[in-house]
Each structure stands twice: as C-alpha cells, then as structure tokens.
C-alpha cells in the first residue's frame, strides 16, 4: 500500500473552547500505488490539513500515517525530509516558484537536497525532458515573472516530479488559474498519473478537475466519504 491513514484525527486549540476544534475526526484511507484520488469539500473543511498530514508537513493529533508501510510518526525530521525529497512531490496553489531562478533552475531545486543524487547531467536531462513534456522547453531560461499563471504552475508540477516521487500531492493546483490554464493543468496531472505511474492525490473544490480523477472522496464534518461512481 502506498499510503495508509488509520483513524487519523486532527484537533486545534481554540481560545474559549477547552476541547478545541476538531478538523479531522476519524480518517481511514488506503491509497494504492498508481491511483488518482481527489478530495473535495467546502472551503475550510480541512482538505489542506489532510494533505499536509499525508505529505509529512503536519502531524495528526491521533491515529497513524503509513507511507510505504512505514509509520511516519516513528521517523525523525531528517528522515521525513528525505521522504519528502525523494518519495513525495508537492504542487501548491501559489506554486511558490523562486523568482530569482530560471525555469530550469526552479525545477532543479529539489535535487539540491539530495545527497545521493545522480550526476548533474542526468538530472538536467531529466528536467529538460519533463519540461518538454509540459511544453516549456523553449522557456528554460525564463524567469517566473516572465511566464503566465498556467505556465508557472506547469513548472511547479515538473519541479514536483524531478526526483521521480511515488506520490504527488496537489493542493488546489488550479485554484489561481483561468479556465484554459486549469484545463491544461488537469490534463497534465492525469497524463502524468498514467505515464509516470505516480500516485496522485489532489485537493480541490473544482468539479471539473475532480471529475478527471479516478477516485473521489468528500471531506465533510471531519470525515471522508467515498463519492466515486461505482
């Protein structure tokens, strides 16, 4: 199993409320390798929180998260960073590209954290290849400020894939894009899921993107409900 959540709950402290605010109540989820899962829900329901827990950016208040059979709670910060670097790719709503770096350099940023990385030539070739796949080969030396919103998000997707992760997490990847760009990104994600065999978990409140995924879950009142078509 690629990713398994077992009775995961998340609670935040709240002034005036001794018990705190439960965002996630009892989440149990198993994601097989190669699947594409979308989690939908109203704004503020905890989708991003769930994604952060999956991506080791946050910890559950209770429950377990297993990644490739490993209990993430048992790992040190260093080990978690290695997992994020090598096993997981992130795509954020606001892309968080480095404005001071070129497209190519932005894509290569995650490789800097990999002590065991292959040669720079190999990495560079892979980066160029990936950028070509997303139609950005001509933009290698462009800065993010010179690209459109859709193009930036495509760069962010490539960055997430540079280390060949097993799991790709996308948090509202089309949230700040126009319709056409959103479509492009959605196509890209689906295509990568098929071609790269990377497990895809997307959080969105875009119905059109949700429809493109293989498995739909809805997060509501802290609980996940399966909304997939039979």
């Amino acid at each position: 199993m690629m990713l398994e959540l077992i009775h995961v709950a998340k609670k935040y402290e709240s002034p005036g409320d001794i018990q705190g605010l439960s965002v996630l109540k009892d989440i149990t989820l198993k994601v097989e390798p190669g699947r594409s899962l979308v989690i939908v829900g109203p704004s503020g329901c905890g989708k991003s929180t769930l994604l952060n827990i999956m991506g080791t950016l946050d910890y559950p208040s209770s429950g377990k998260v297993l990644f490739d059979g490993q209990d993430l709670a048992a790992l040190s910060q260093k080990e978690l960073a290695v997992i994020r670097n090598k096993q997981i790719g992130f795509v954020f709503q606001l892309h968080h590209l480095l404005p001071q770096c070129t497209v190519l350099e932005n894509v290569l940023v995650p490789t800097l954290a990999d002590k065991m990385r292959p040669s720079m030539k190999e990495i560079r070739d892979r980066a160029v290849q990936l950028l070509q796949r997303v139609g950005l080969k001509e933009f290698l030396l462009y800065r993010p400020g010179e690209l459109s919103g859709g193009q930036r998000q495509r760069v962010a997707v490539v960055r997430a894939l540079i280390n060949s992760p097993k799991l790709l997490l996308a948090d509202e990847p089309t949230g700040s894009l126009d319709k056409d760009s959103s479509e492009n990104i959605a196509d890209l994600l689906v295509e990568l899921n098929h071609s790269e065999k990377v497990t895809l978990v997307v959080v969105t409140h875009s119905l059109s993107l949700a429809e493109r995924m293989g498995w739909v879950m809805e997060l509501s009142d802290g609980l996940l409900k399966d909304r997939s078509r039979p």
Binding site: L57, A81, F90, L112, A113
Partner: peptide, 16 residues
C-alpha cells in the same frame, strides 16, 4: 517565507 516553506516541503532539511 513562502520560498522557505517550499524548500522545506521539497526536502530541504532546516540545517541545509
């Protein structure tokens, strides 16, 4: 801060 968060998210350790 967003950049720094991104770098941490892509696997940069705090030390790095």
């Amino acid at each position: 801060s967003g950049q720094i968060g991104m770098l941490l998210a892509v696997g940069f350790s705090p030390k790095l």
